[in-house]
């Protein structure tokens, strides 16, 4: 009953404050610059290992950017979000906020959406600028891929923001929350894939081979990678993905839905905990 009684206006007020705060303290500007700079460098030097510099095909550029985004966006999202609730609690402003005609779910959603808007703003502006720079040589199909890349980067950011907000509700103080956020980054970005590969190698491919594609879906960073790499023929073979990932699981619709689940589930868990 209480879950259904949501007032979008209240969510909007909280979200607007969060977003405005990030504009005013120049967070959005700083992260936009970071994204633009990294994207430019990668677009230009991405193939340096192969002995060449300069802008290359959009497919290869996207593949390089995906590697960057997988490290950077989750980290930025976690840093942005870990403070959301525990920060208010520790500062002592949470009680006053909750004494307003505002439910806990509305506060969570407001925080999440406001921070998401800030992150999305930086992501789209940062990578969009680089896209415009590459624009002259892009076909409409390449634009479609690049837009997909930006959208999925936004979704990846939201998934990790959702995890960060969850950490923020569960943690008793800011120090623990930041520790938890960093641990999540290590786990999903660095450790998870190694664990999967390790299991695969140690068992000689017997244990996890069939489950492997599904296990990849349990990590939003991997979902993001598959979304972007699988859609592009040139790159798919390059990465050898065709051999481990079945075509039927690779539809953008399905992967998008998995990503949405990764956004909704942590928030749901956070809400369950917050109400206690």
């Amino acid at each position: 009953m209480t879950i259904l009684a949501i007032e979008p206006r209240q969510i909007g007020i909280i979200a607007a404050k969060e977003f405005r705060d990030r504009i005013r303290n120049r967070w959005v500007l700083a992260v936009t610059i970071v994204f633009t700079a990294f994207a430019l460098v990668i677009a230009y030097f991405g193939a340096a290992q192969q002995g060449a510099v300069g802008f290359r095909s959009i497919e290869i550029t996207i593949a390089s950017l995906v590697s960057l985004v997988i490290y950077l966006v989750p980290l930025i999202a976690l840093i942005l979000g870990f403070d959301a609730i525990v920060g208010e609690r520790e500062r002592g402003s949470l009680d006053l906020l909750l004494s307003m005609p505002l439910t806990r779910l509305e506060l969570l959603l407001g925080k999440f959406l406001g921070l998401s808007a800030a992150l999305a703003c930086s992501t789209i502006t940062g990578f969009g600028l680089v896209g415009l720079l590459l624009g002259s040589r892009l076909s409409s199909n390449a634009w479609y891929n690049y837009a997909g890349f930006m959208l999925s980067a936004v979704l990846l950011g939201m998934a990790f923001l959702s995890l960060a907000v969850m950490v923020s509700v569960f943690a008793t103080d800011r120090a623990r929350a930041s520790g938890g956020a960093i641990a999540l980054w290590f786990f999903f970005v660095l450790v998870y894939d190694l664990l999967l590969l390790g299991t695969l190698v140690v068992s000689g491919g017997a244990v996890a081979a069939n489950a492997f594609p599904y296990l990849l879906l349990l990590n939003p960073a991997d979902v993001f990678r598959i979304l972007n790499i699988f859609g592009i023929n040139d790159v798919r073979t390059l990465y050898g993905l065709t051999t481990v990932f079945p075509e039927r699981l690779a539809s953008p619709g399905l992967l998008g839905a998995v990503m949405l689940a990764w956004i909704i589930l942590p928030l749901g868990l956070a809400n369950w905990r917050f109400r206690k």
């Binding site: 705060d21 002592g92 402003s93 009680d95 006053l96 004494s99």
Partner: peptide, 10 residues
């Protein structure tokens, strides 16, 4: 209306 002890703002 609620005024908490040691009120904190932004």
């Amino acid at each position: 209306g609620y005024l908490p002890e040691n009120v904190v703002f932004y």
